[in-house]
């Protein structure tokens, strides 16, 4: 078992608040690792530390054995760690296709000169990217939306477009922040299928999700956070019956 992404004693403080304390997680290559936990448990903060949006107060993040702690978000993305956002972040006034092409930014190689003269190399590169973007859109079932403005898409489709935007980059690790939040049951099925297909391609998927049924259905491993700490980790069925997990969820509910 090799860890593709791991954290060691990761802590994050905002003023006096401990958002994350001493978090050590190993994400196995090829796993579909779900991160669950009550609201405010630090799940999104954890994602932000992994992807360079927050700099952890202490501790380390390692990707394929080399340290990536505190790297700039763009650099982290360049390494093949791609994410989606909890409150979807599309580029609303660009077309769906262009949004996906933006995801392939680092694969567009033309220099200024070849762009200016529209050299054959530049055209070839763009054509190649466009056809890959169309394949990504087809993968998530949005090929027929390619020419609409991203801002005009309904919620569920935007979520899928975000996935296509991640996929065109051919990522090593995909981090999904609540992929199924707020979508209809039909869309939920669709998203679940797409996520499983991404996983089936051998891509490591880490996903924050509140929908426990979905997690039990597709995750290969589950980590439960509460108050910035890991309270349980393991196979879905084991975690489900863990008394600490039940207390974290049910305890809150009773109040």
């Amino acid at each position: 078992m090799t860890a593709v992404l791991e954290t060691e004693h990761l802590s994050l403080q905002f003023g006096g608040v401990n958002a994350l304390s001493d978090l050590s997680i190993q994400i196995e290559a090829g796993s579909l690792h779900a991160i669950i936990g009550p609201n405010g448990a630090g799940k999104t903060s954890f994602f932000n530390c992994l992807t360079g949006y927050y700099k952890p107060t202490s501790g380390a993040v390692r990707f394929r054995g080399s340290e990536v702690t505190g790297l700039d978000a763009a650099k982290v993305a360049g390494l093949g760690i791609r994410r989606t956002f909890q409150n979807i972040r599309v580029f609303p006034k660009m077309s769906v296709l262009e949004n996906v092409l933006a995801g392939g930014h680092l694969r567009a190689t033309a220099n200024l000169f070849s762009i200016t003269v529209a050299s054959p190399g530049f055209r070839r590169n763009e054509r190649q990217l466009r056809s890959e973007a169309m394949s990504s859109l087809e993968f998530v079932g949005l090929a027929d939306q390619w020419n609409n403005l991203a801002g005009d898409l309904p919620y569920g489709m935007r979520k899928r477009m975000e996935l296509a935007r991640v996929l065109i980059a051919d990522p090593v690790v995909v981090l999904l922040d609540e992929p199924a939040a707020g979508v209809s049951s039909v869309e939920r099925e669709e998203l679940s299928r797409v996520i499983q297909r991404i996983h089936a391609q051998g891509t490591c998927v880490i996903m924050i999700e509140h929908d426990v049924d979905l997690v039990m259905e597709i995750a290969t491993e589950v980590t439960v956070l509460d108050n910035g700490r890991i309270i349980a980790s393991g196979l879905p069925q084991d975690v489900r019956n863990n008394p600490d997990v039940i207390r974290a969820y049910m305890g809150r509910k009773r109040k």
Binding site: R83, H105, A110, A169
Partner: peptide, 23 residues
Amino acid sequence: SRLGRAWLCIREDEDAAKAMGIN
């Protein structure tokens, strides 16, 4: 080109642009 797309991404949402690997 990638330049134009990167600029528009920055205009639309700078944080999301970073997630595309755009410096």
